[in-house]
Amino acid sequence: MQKFEERLLAELKDVVAAQTASAPVDSRTRRARWRWVGLATAAAATAAGLAIGIPVLTGDRAPQANAVVRDPDGSIRIYIRDYRHPEVIASRLRGLGVPAVVDFVPNDKRCRTPRGTVTPNNDRWLVTGEPQQDDGQGPYNRLHPDRIGPGKTLVLEVSFTSFSGGASVAWMFVGTATGSVGPCVLVPAPPKMTRGPNGGVGG
């Protein structure tokens, strides 16, 4: 085989390896290990134009493959368990008919703006968290694709904090784009957007 095919095989093997690295975790343990980002974080992030409502993984839970699951009402559960392959989430959302651009960024960075004609969707509750629900597969955020609007692309920028034994979502930008979305070029995040593993907002 030639170059492209070999490179693609390497990427696919990375995806499978990431899934294989996951270990089953007892749901009771998971339930105890995730919690909701506090209102202080929500206030700070919303002020910065960010959607909030992020279930957070803490502790030593092993990373699992990212997944998206459509429910009968048309909404989609998004499980973020691994911070290496945002393109897998984007691809799986597209498989469900939702055009999406997804990026993972370290806690102290964010994607340089503008990336295109992107509108934040804080007020439309495009993506909501459900802190009281754990379906046995861990916490998730719920996407409401009917609120994206025709011809638009979902834009998710997920900031994560790495720490000993795991990682957690720090904040999530949710928006919709008209037309193309540029690549994510990392730039330093404003201090108030950074958050430590204990949930406190930096800056």
């Binding site: 990427e11 984007a90 055009p99 999406a100 651009v101 011809g151 692309t153 037309g179 193309s180 979305v181």
Partner: peptide, 9 residues
């Protein structure tokens, strides 16, 4: 629906 591809794998 769109004029060009965006951000797939």
């Amino acid at each position: 629906r769109e004029s060009r591809a965006v951000g797939r794998i």
